[in-house]
Write a protein that binds this DNA or RNA. Structure first.
Length: 210
DNA sequence: ACATTAATTGTGT
DNA sequence: ACACAATTAATGT
């Protein structure tokens, strides 16, 4: 795979050519498959990932048992948690799981700090990244606090369909329940209701959005 | 081709 | 939430 093309494709509009060149020089490309665990709770991070290809879901572990999906990362995104962890050498508070197969470019911490002073576009990118993650967190909180489960499933399905570029999602009800931190029976019932409303079509192991 | 088993989904309490 | 029924996929004989 051609490193330069891939990076240019993902960040051409965002970084100045000079910076892209530097990224190409120092970045290590890492490929991953669907469902790979990229970062786990309590893990330390030594490099900052830039997502080039594919999609990653960011999960938060609940107090006792169970997980909750916070948001998805797509091409051109980076993980805000990682940026904080890198500079402070703190443990990760989140888990990152590959939603689809894809590629990340790993940037050494030293470089990322150097670029903060050197490149305006890098600073802007980092701040903008923080900002948009923050906003996604807010909407995740809105979903949990103010929306009922049926609405949560709907927005979940929509996001899922967006990151996978498909109207058909191959997910079991159990898996959905896990990501929304609910129970399978509740999901099944609500999905059934949505099917009756003509919003979706249910098959075994896959859900079709209409 | 058939029987058995496991996994997924549906429903009533 | 729990229990159980029904349906479908996977596997062995």
């Amino acid at each position: 795979m051609d490193v330069t093309t891939l990076i240019e494709e993902s960040f051409a509009g965002v970084f100045e050519p000079q910076l892209i060149k530097e990224i190409v020089d120092v970045a290590t490309l890492v490929e991953f498959d669907e469902n790979d665990i990229l970062i786990d709770f309590g893990q330390y991070m030594r490099a900052m990932p830039l997502l080039m290809k594919g999609a990653i879901k960011i999960m938060r572990e609940d107090f006792d048992e169970g997980e909750l999906l916070l948001y998805f990362l797509e091409k051109g995104d980076t993980c805000a948690m990682t940026m904080a962890c890198c500079v402070g050498t703190k443990k990760s508070e989140i888990r990152a799981i590959a939603e689809t197969a894809g590629v990340v470019a790993m940037i050494p911490v030293a470089k990322m700090e150097e670029w903060m002073g050197k490149y305006k576009s890098w600073r802007a990118f980092v701040f903008q990244s923080y900002n948009s993650r923050f906003n996604e967190l807010l909407s995740a909180i809105d979903n949990i606090a103010f929306k009922h489960m049926d609405e949560r499933i709907e927005s979940y399905l929509n996001e899922k369909s967006k990151v996978n570029n498909s109207r058909i999602l191959t997910q079991t009800h159990q898996e959905i329940a896990y990501e929304l931190n609910s129970s399978r029976v509740v999901i099944s019932r609500l999905l059934k209701a949505m099917e009756n409303d003509g919003k979706i079509k249910l098959n075994r192991n896959n859900i079709e959005l209409l």
